[in-house]
Design a protein around this nucleic acid. Structure first.
Lengths: 129, 129, 129, 129
DNA sequence: GTGGTCTAGACCACG
DNA sequence: GTGGTCTAGACCACC
């Protein structure tokens, strides 16, 4: 299974499920038009209450990521993969902008910030000159 | 007054008070050894519940940033300014590292990330070549 | 075939089948005394579960619209066409009355309501002065 | 109290609460910026489970009608009254259009439809010529 | 089997 | 006191 819950970090379980399902859809682990695992199956897998999973799935429906197919299950909506990817990028961009703004406000050394940035980026661009 | 509360953003009010007091100490708006304003005064100023301010001050005492002066009030602890600066820097550095790690994991374009970084940093380094 | 299913709109599929069969009988697409297509045929045609069609047919029998012909199939009952027309008219009349009552209660402009009504009616009365 | 629940009509209780709260806001029974009654109070009043009320309120938050004020309660959002009025009008307009379209499709007599319409409208326009 | 709704009761953080 | 989260277990309609 793709999903993992961290019961320690304070984030609501249902939100972790929402995020991870969106991430799984973005990565095409769940494909558009196909059914996602049932509420009960996921609840069993993660050892959490089915209601908690149902709440996450309800959220995913209002977000337009899942669609209910009566008596059959929940299917990934058409266009959800692209939207999930876009949402995630937007979220990260916003957080990056905010933390940098706070860093500047706290007078952190710009060059030190650049060093941190390059250290992370180098992991993904090993061949870059 | 230095402090401002945002009732919308979901952050606990007492935590906003804690952070802002620490920030004020880091910036030497409150100087070491001097008394900070009373719980009642701050509560009145910010139009929040005195219990909330008291809770923030309790937190600041456990953090070793404020010290009770018997029968007088609460004073900024010696060495608090430097510690507050360091805490803030550490916090921001950790958050920056984390969000960059997630960005890389989501395959965001490294050059776009650099662009965001430079846009923020340019605000504070206008004279940089 | 006359029937079409909308899997999105939340209406139970078996009820959509019931309504459409009644509508087809009202419009004499299925004539009194003649056999309707078999459960299997309709299920194949609409790509739905035969159980669902069977349930719709059961409902149509209790409604007195279809009659079982032993060993042969299901036939449109005598008098069903007129009854279906009447049922449908009654249903629509009731819904119209209700939505208008709510509209009045919400203080919608009566003239705007009349405009909506005339816009729909003009489609069917092109020659009316 | 303003709210009433019909346990018979099949509509989910939480949805009835959502609609009625929106209607109450549209009618300014609950005013913008003020707190609505607490989850527990409404639950007690209507003799339903607090979770059910909480679910309705969660929906109202995602609809932008209510705003959570930490530790204090839920307040009517600014601009909610106008939005609630508009939503209700749109909803009714859509339903009216749809039922009329079905009526026309079923070949109901246009003049009978006009009669129904005028009968309802006359209740609110007694002085109209 | 599926999701959807509701209840009951518990625990938490916040003001 | 407030809302928010989670669990447990029940019942329903639908396929």
């Amino acid at each position: 299974m793709f999903l993992q819950i961290d019961f320690q970090n304070g984030l609501p379980i249902y939100e972790q499920v929402v995020r991870q399902v969106k991430f799984a859809i973005a990565g095409e682990d769940f494909k558009e038009g196909e059914l996602v695992p049932s509420v009960r199956e996921i609840a069993r897998e993660l050892a959490i209450n089915p209601n908690t999973v149902a709440r996450a799935f309800r959220q995913l429906q209002t977000d337009g990521v899942l669609q209910s197919v009566r008596g059959t299950g929940l299917a990934v909506a058409i266009g959800a993969a692209q939207r999930c990817r876009k949402d995630r990028v937007e979220l990260i961009r916003a957080r990056l902008t905010q933390v940098l703004s706070e860093a500047v406000q706290s007078r952190l050394d710009p060059d030190e910030l650049r060093t941190i940035v390059e250290r992370e980026l180098s992991a993904v661009e090993p061949g870059k000159a």
